[in-house]
Nucleic acid binder design. Structure first.
Lengths: 334, 334
DNA sequence: AGAAATTGTTAAACCGTTTAATCTCACTGA
DNA sequence: TCAGTGAGATTAAACGGTTTAACAATTTCT
């Protein structure tokens, strides 16, 4: 039905093998013949079929990336740099979105198997460790974010959340803040627990009493109600460490609604360095987790894992970096 | 090497055809045999190879979507609803990001051809009409945003920008504003030109002099410098219509930096209803372009185009809707 | 009971490409 | 002159599924 390699071969007056060799630049074809084939391809507008190609050449050149929510501003940048890097390494990249739903996570993993990818970057925590092991058992390389120990075909990307929190608390301490509240995120998430823990630890290191710790939901609303609550506390904290930027924006809104000024009365910090941090008013002091590095390293890790003879997993570390904004300032004189 | 349908057939003691029939629910298999096959599949953990499947069954069940920039907050929602709808219709969806680069746009289109997709939703304007025609000529259904007239295998999704602008101007007029400025976007973009034109037309309809029209860049920075400029105009406009939300945020920042209050002194409106509009402070009066509808309709349009016997293109219209925020209010008494 | 209709299963061809094995033939060197 | 060489091209067998014509078994009908 559609144009095949046979049509090209006929047009150029050669065999299909020759066409294939020209297309794949194996260098086995004479210059004259090469020209013939190329012009036949041009003339006919032939485009090879990726499915037939994958099937015939046992060499699978696809990488997958699974994210929990493409609408979460954290992911697009990661996806993009993953895809760019994958392409540089000669892979096709496919994306699946799980929407935080375990069923769809299963489907996503199955899709990766169906597509016979060489590796998958798992950027969500709704996935079960069993599923990861299943992928690895099928010799599909996997990278994930601190979900399991490293093993065969499994590498780990550790984001240094603790260091980010450390830098925030240090920053606030040096500005003179002593009562520093924390607005948490969702309970189940390991990445959230790590940050809370780091906060508590660092506070103690400075000889400060941790807390109060307010509940949040990783969303604007949770931040806002926390902000309202904090505004009427007595003694009122002079600084708030929020679990992410969106929460920080909510906190600021809550504070401002009750007349608290940011940062004159209360300093607020976020996490993740989303665009929101930059564009909110005041802009937010936050932590940059180098998302483009994350995506790139994920692709590199998969490449290395699936390419080498010994697919032993490795640990990678992604650094976090404090970025100053207008939302943090000197503690008010009591 | 990996598990094939033959392994399953052997395990179940049937032929490969039978396994295939069970997997594809053709209903030609007896209950007993069905059970045998299913349990063999389970036991072995067999997952079919998508490439072999596509190759053998000539029925291509993939749709593609090409966007200019996945990091642009406009797209993720569109992509998601496109993928969800595609899946409901039984398609696999693949995504390409062009990064506003014509070369990458070409690559994206080629990728779609290589994958032998049934249809492509083109959500970028960097694509040449030639390329769209080339896709259509290969009987790949295409939908786009007002890039070309409808033809065979080509449907058009028209976003009603004009109506959105109309609603904004009407809203401001009714609040008593008479001097309404406009902050433009990028010059080449048709979608931007349409909005500017609609603004001018509507202003005249109300017997108002359009302008001033300030340049922008669809980014925060352009908005901010426009905001600074507007602040020192005399007589100062009492309202500003910005080309998009990000620009509006910039405008507000610029205004506020010079002591103008929003909306007490100057009202500001955005466009697109990104998260930014909701979370900025004050939140922005903006226009919602129903992105999830856009994605869904794109998938539906492709399905219809590629499914029916006569692939005649159609026109679809996406409505725009005013959403009130805190950034617009009554015109100040002069 | 035997023919006809229905249902279930299989063997073999095919999808569009790659690739190992094989063939051709002009050229080299002894 | 002729075996040996090697570059360039071809042939044919995969790859992992689906599809279809043909056959076998069972049920239905007369």
């Amino acid at each position: 039905m559609a144009l095949t390699i046979r049509d090209v071969a006929r047009e150029a007056g050669v065999s299909t093998a020759t066409v294939s060799n020209v297309l794949n630049r194996t260098g086995k074809v004479g210059r004259r013949t090469q020209r013939l084939v190329v012009s036949a391809v041009r003339k006919l507008g032939y485009v090879p079929d990726v499915h037939a190609r994958h099937l015939a050449s046992h060499d699978r050149r696809t990488l997958g990336i699974i994210v929990s929510d493409i609408e979460n501003p954290f992911f697009p940048e990661v996806i993009k740099s993953f895809e760019v890097r994958a392409q540089q390494l000669g892979y096709d990249a496919i994306l699946s979105d799980t929407n935080y739903d375990p069923r769809r996570t299963r489907r996503a993993a199955e899709r990766m198997m169906e597509h016979k990818v060489r590796g998958v970057a798992v950027m969500t925590s709704e996935i079960s460790v069993r599923l990861i092991h299943e992928l690895a058992r099928r010799k599909i390389a996997v990278t994930f974010l601190d979900l399991a120990p490293v093993r065969e075909y499994m590498s780990n990307l550790r984001i240094n959340y603790a260091s980010g929190v450390d830098q925030i608390v240090k920053h606030l301490y040096e500005l003179g803040h002593r009562r520093i509240a924390f607005v948490a995120g969702r309970d189940g998430l390991k990445s959230n627990a790590v940050r809370l823990e780091a906060y508590e630890q660092r506070m103690k290191m400075y000889g400060l009493e941790p807390g109060p710790v307010l509940p949040g939901d990783l969303r604007f609303e949770g931040g806002m109600s926390a902000g309202l609550e904090i505004a009427k506390m007595s003694p009122r904290p002079t600084a708030v460490v929020a679990i992410n930027d969106l929460t920080a924006v909510g906190v600021m809104k809550g504070l401002m609604q009750t007349g608290c000024r940011v940062p004159q009365d209360v300093s607020v910090t976020g996490f993740d360095k989303t665009r929101l941090a930059e564009y909110s008013n005041p802009s937010i002091t936050t932590v940059d987790i180098h998302r483009e590095t994350l995506g790139k390293i994920a692709a590199d890790a998969l490449h290395e894992l699936s390419d080498s003879a010994n697919p032993t997993g490795k640990e990678y570390e992604i650094e976090a970096e404090l970025v100053l904004g207008e939302s943090s300032g000197p503690a008010p004189l009591t």
